[in-house]
Structures are given as C-alpha cells and as structure tokens.
C-alpha cells in the first residue's frame, strides 16, 4: 500500500536573483513496510526531498500525498497535526532536548497525544526496549554516546507508532561502528514491527540495510529498485 507519494514535485529555492531547482519534477511512492534508502551526491536534493515528504516544507509545484490525500495548502496547525500523528523524524545531529533525560525525550511527542499516563509510560519503556536503552533511561543526552543518543532519537520517532519514519543522514555524525549499530536497529524494527523507514545517506556501507534504493541526482530520480540490484551492480562494477 502506498502511504506517501511525491507527484511531479518541483522545489525551487531563491537566493536573491538566483533560482536553484533542487527537485525537478520528481515522482516517488513509498510503500508500507519498506526500508527505503535515498542516495545521491551532495547537493542532489536528498534533504530537500525528505523535508517535503515530512511535510516540513511545501513544494513549489507538484504534490505530496499522505495516504492518498493531498497535503498542499495545509495550515501550519493542520500540517503539525499530521506530522504528530503519522510521521516520525530522526535527525543527523540527534536533536534531543538537552534538559530532558532519555525517558523524557522519548515521552515528549506522546504528551500531545490523548493517552493515559500508564499507556504513555508503557509505550516509552517499549520504545526504549526496542533500541536497547532501558538502562540509560534516566540519563541526560550529554551523558550518552553519539550512538546512544541516536537510538534515543529512534525511540522518540517510534513511540507514536507513526506511518513512517524519515531520517536525513542518521549516521553522518557517527563513527562507523555506531553507524552500523543504528542501521541494524532500524532494520530490526523494520523487520519485526514492519516500521517503514525512509533514510538518506552518503555512506555506501550502510546501504545493505535497505530493502529499496532510490538514487537521485540533480533533483530527479536516476535509479529506483530493490536493494539487491544495486549491490549487484556495485559488485559487478567492482569485479570489472
């Protein structure tokens, strides 16, 4: 089932007199249960695309459909409500609230959902368990390693049971070991809970965790296919 779609999406940035087309009529459909990796060189439009898919910004033309429903002309409030209900976010630099401990950070998005205290706590503990962080629940972010922080961020994105989780370069600020652990955690969630992930990356080493790979360049999709084909292609190229 298609949960999120981009149709003929154009995003143009204006810097003074300069117009930059970051996306140029891009089409993409995201299906439930996918682990979708967006790859592409720097400046190709990955962040721009994820911002549009996450309803954080509006396209210059074209449309984003959430569960088949168009999302243009949403008010700030309506977009915020949709994000809160359907989307989770993981950021490159974690973006945890420094004054809250891990538990409170994960709990934060639920405060604005109609849940009892008990339901909320159960969900937070479950999310922390999913990323194997129960034992550091009472630590503040500055007492955690980068990898642990990003796992808290994953739990925070997960805890509202969103339709899908968007992650823009979730491993870019991590060493390769932590990066691998983060991707493994996401993949585990994808396989066990069928959580849908869309993530972007520069790093070919994490690609193998994806089920599908979309390669963009200059604001359009160059290649879109299951992970295996890409790895095969890479392997072929290497063997040549």
């Amino acid at each position: 089932m298609e949960i999120l779609q981009a149709q003929e999406v154009v995003k143009e940035y204006t810097l003074g007199k300069l117009h930059v087309q970051a996306l140029r009529g891009l089409n993409l459909a995201i299906h439930s249960g996918e682990m979708l990796c967006i790859m592409g060189p720097s400046g190709s439009g990955k962040t721009t695309l994820l911002n549009l898919l996450g309803l954080l910004d509006a396209p210059s033309s074209g449309s984003i459909l959430l569960q088949g429903k168009p999302t243009q002309n949403l008010s700030y409030k309506e977009a915020a409500r949709l994000r809160s209900r359907f989307l989770g976010f993981i950021f490159q630099s974690f973006n945890l609230f420094p004054v809250l401990n891990a538990f409170e950070n994960v709990e934060y998005p639920l405060l604005f959902h109609p849940l009892t205290r008990k339901e909320r706590r159960d969900r937070v503990w479950a999310a922390l368990a999913d990323v194997q962080l129960r034992e550091v629940a009472m630590h503040r972010p500055d007492e955690l390693s980068g990898g642990q922080r990003q796992r808290v961020a994953i739990a925070r994105a997960l805890v509202t049971h969103p339709l899908l989780i968007l992650a823009d370069e979730p491993t870019a600020n991590l060493d390769s070991e932590s990066a691998e652990a983060i991707m493994a955690a996401m993949q585990r969630l994808n396989q066990s809970h069928r959580t849908t992930f869309v993530f972007s990356t520069h790093d070919p080493r994490v690609v193998h965790h994806a089920t599908r790979i979309v390669r963009i360049s200059d604001g359009v999709i160059q290649h879109d296919g299951p992970q295996a084909t890409v790895t095969n292609l890479l392997e072929k190229r290497i063997s040549k």
Binding site: L56, Y76, S84, F89, N95, F97, P98, Y108, F112, R156
Partner: peptide, 13 residues
C-alpha cells in the same frame, strides 16, 4: 534547533 525539532514533532505555535 530545539524549536525546529518541536515543530517537526508536531508542536503547535
């Protein structure tokens, strides 16, 4: 950035 995060998470104005 914290305000940006709050907004992304879906906090209203």
């Amino acid at each position: 950035r914290e305000f940006g995060t709050m907004m992304a998470i879906g906090n209203g104005r």
